[in-house]
Design a binder for these strands. Structure first.
Lengths: 231, 231, 231, 231
DNA sequence: AATGAATGAGTCTTCATTCAT
DNA sequence: TATGAATGAAGACTCATTCAT
């Protein structure tokens, strides 16, 4: 057992590495197997098909994302707004560090939209609906959200967030912002002559606006410090 | 002459219809041709390849999106904040009415991110880089943004938006929110037992938060009315 | 008429230029038309199809080759062996200057082999058999040969070629040698460590052997000079 | 085990059979697979693409040709000139028995010419340059030549070939002749009214000329017998 | 003579997946 | 568990040729 990494993990790690550099479609199952150092047949023993493998990866992504939410919540000595700011920055870091996990989450959200709409459900690849990991995802997908809502609630309780806000809607809005933020990287870093703002200014401004949107009467004793730029 | 639509448009329309119901990958060029009522060869005569066709579609999507921005700006008797609220709702409607156009825009933003990052540029399908429509897109992609920034500037000038805000960063933040909003539709409409909020409540709450974030001292004479739910 | 080159010639010239750089298969009829500065339709007006065009080109190649034979024969003050040596060098020059013409002749010889063998005739592309130029070729293909045989005969008569040789067989043998010579360029110019002979040495040696094979008792008054290397 | 030929060989044999009757271009990979009794995919498993398959075939052709050279050299009781005469006849027989192998060799020589000329190298299909078999060919292509040169050297040593001849150039000249010989089959067998010589006479005459060209003072004890006509 | 939009048969190639061992 | 040879459905793309004008 020792020195013999779990095969399932081996495969998943290989898949992540390849999806990262080549994308899902361009990555062949054969390459995943080769990178994992095992045979193609065994890969199919552990994962029913390519979609199943991707769903397993997505499941892991959600678990890791949940860890970020949990760690944020565990931090001592921060009020709700500070925690929320921290969370957003953690999400950004997560996207930088694990772009494939992040993309898989976005993809799952799109899937969920189709899954929830009878007219669109048929567009989902049947192999995905077959995947056991997809169904696990349906169960756990709300966990990060639940933790996020807890954070907002705490902010309302401790006065760092306006009391009139509704925790759930507020959290979803924050998450929307965080997700959308990433999409702006393209236009902003594209060196058009007209783009005047730097990624750093954009990041700072974004957080400031978010805080303005939420802040209650209680301020942090120490001024909120925006973590060093991710760029 | 009547009944004889321009061939290029015929193809594009067919592509949109098929991409909408089956997605880009699942749509075969042969089906596009058939739906357009022409031969396969002619499709390739007008569009170099599938990617080129998709880029042409994306180009049209940006043009249509720009129209929304322009129409928003043209509206009489609205202050900047009202226009911005209107714009966000127009974007949502755009996404509802033309999901494929919308997705193509999101896709292009991802592309732009890779294109701007030397390390990721190689991940872009060479056929895309070859497409003349892609290069046209690079030129025009900032146009909606420019109009959006104008709207924010106007809001600052007319006092409906806080004067201390920076127009560019503010607009990008709003657009981030709008883009992220759509991703939330999945979790919110997924009928988990735990989801308490309705799409309508979520929409209203989202807009309210956005307005709180921006609003200056001047209020609209008539109270801002959120348009009937899109759902 | 003046300043307006004949269209057929325009097409043929374009075809030669393109076949030279890209080969027959890789050259598209569209490109030929474009290079000729006329429309695709007109190209098909003058040449029934691609094969027909190629046969027309081959016909021209034979005409030009015949000119070389004729010019050789016209030379004053040379005995038969000298003329034959001259001819071989003209053939080499022809191959250097007009590789496509040369290849088309080789191709026609292969065609002729199949055409003469009932078991192989079916392998010939029917479009070739349809071509009027192919049938013209069948008629004229012997013309260069006839001139070549004349040269050998003259050499036998003037004593520069051994009297016991049979003119036809001798000429065919010389032509075989000349045709095969060109195939050796590859191995000889390929810079293997083991190849010791230079193209120039090879050329001189080849001619010397040929002359040894044929020469009668009468030598040229002036020593036979091998023309400056073609390489 | 019996009846279960090696798959690679199965494919190659199928390819030869089809190339022989239909030519390279007209033969579809699917037909090769079908003829080999395996699936299309497996064909591509063993050979990267059609060009690779053709290069593998060419490689085998060179191996077989080398065998002819080797067998010629092994013959007991023959002097060099006799061996050379034997070799030429073996080459002719090889061409008759395996026309596709022979054509593939000619094709490779053309390839080699382009490969050795920087200006022409780009004309070579990239798939060929990719083929591992092509590169093997580059390595082994000189082997038959080396054996041929050995034969000539031996002839010079044993006096059957003129001592003043240079072995390498002489061999190349003989090979040129042998290669060119095959091209003459067309015109000679084409039943034009004017062709007076029979294939048999042509063959005999050709060999005679060749021997005249080379022969030294030593004659074979038994008169050299030209093998029964190949036609 | 001249154009060039329109056709569509033809084929290579890929790759997820299976299964005998 | 583990292998990797074997399968075959699927689809993008080319280009010689035609024909309405």
């Amino acid at each position: 057992m020792a020195g013999e990494k779990n095969k399932e993990k081996l495969i998943l790690d290989a898949a992540i590495a390849l999806f990262t550099t080549q994308g899902f479609t361009a990555t062949r199952m054969e390459d995943v197997s080769k990178k994992a150092g095992i045979s193609k047949g065994l890969t199919y023993f552990y994962y029913k098909n390519k979609e199943d493998l991707f769903m397993a990866l997505t499941k892991k992504a959600f678990d890791l994302l949940k860890d970020e939410f949990r760690d944020t919540l565990r931090a001592k000595g921060k009020n709700g707004l500070e925690m929320l700011t921290d969370l957003v920055q953690r999400i950004w870091k997560f996207e930088k560090d694990h772009p494939v996990y992040y993309q898989s989450i976005i993809h799952f959200l799109d899937l969920l939209k189709k899954y929830s709409n009878p007219a669109l459900k048929s567009q989902i690849n049947p192999l995905i609906l077959d995947s056991i990991h997809f169904h696990k995802l349906l169960e756990i997908q709300l966990e990060p959200t639940r933790l996020g809502i807890q954070i907002v609630s705490q902010g309302i309780k401790d006065g760092s967030i306006r009391p009139e806000l509704q925790a759930e809607i507020t959290f979803y809005t924050i998450w929307s912002m965080a997700l959308g933020y990433e999409k702006m990287e393209g236009p902003i870093s594209f060196e058009g002559k007209e783009t005047k703002i730097s990624p750093e200014a954009w990041q700072r401004g974004f957080l400031k606006l978010m805080q303005d949107m939420l802040k209650g009467t209680i301020q942090a004793t120490k001024p909120q410090v925006v973590q060093a730029s991710l760029f």
